[in-house]
């Protein structure tokens, strides 16, 4: 069953995800600021095996995050839209790439120790100074 669907801005890449998100995070770490161009990245955390790329293919860039974790960031080579990021044990979809982001509200705000002084932070979510337990992997 397809629970979530989305794609890049130009339409070359389409994906589906057959489960609801484990959680939805706003990550304020320095590398997520660089990846989004703004104060945070907004991710739906899902099992990697739940995601199927139905059309097109991403390119990726690998970066070492503040934790020392290696993060693979995937985007569309044609339009630049960010789509996925992953570490060894966590896979995320950018909420802005979903066909309907309205159904995926944030649940946690993480890496607040690195947030810009002007960054908007949701009020009704659980807050973490750095990584939440979820990144330890299940």
């Amino acid at each position: 069953m397809t629970t979530l669907s989305g794609g890049c801005r130009c339409g070359k890449i389409r994906y589906t995800c057959d489960t609801a998100p484990i959680t939805v995070s706003f990550c304020y770490c320095t590398d997520c600021q660089k990846a989004s161009g703004g104060p945070f990245c907004n991710y739906a955390v899902v099992p990697a095996e739940a995601v199927t790329v139905n059309q097109g293919a991403t390119v990726h860039y690998t970066v070492e995050a503040s934790t020392g974790n290696v993060v693979k960031r995937e985007f569309c080579a044609h339009c630049g839209a960010p789509l996925f990021a992953s570490t060894n044990n966590v896979f995320v979809i950018t909420v802005g790439s979903l066909d309907d982001p309205s159904t995926v509200p944030p649940a946690i705000a993480i890496w607040l120790d690195s947030a810009q002084p002007w960054a908007p932070i949701p009020e009704n979510v659980e807050r973490f100074a750095r990584n939440p337990p979820i990144t330890l992997g299940a």
Binding site: C8, R9, C10, F26, A35, S36, G37, G38, P39, F40, C41, N42, Y43, A77, H78, C79, G80, A81, P82, L83, T94, V95, G96, S97, P101
Partner: peptide, 29 residues
């Protein structure tokens, strides 16, 4: 801008179009 940033909004510093000197290749869409 949601698609471009991957999140809730795009966050931009707006400048006159001639304000930036760029070194290196960018890809445009």
């Amino acid at each position: 801008c949601q698609s471009w940033s991957g999140g809730a909004f795009g966050h931009y510093v707006i400048m006159p179009s001639s304000a930036a000197t760029i070194v290196g290749d960018v890809t445009g869409y």
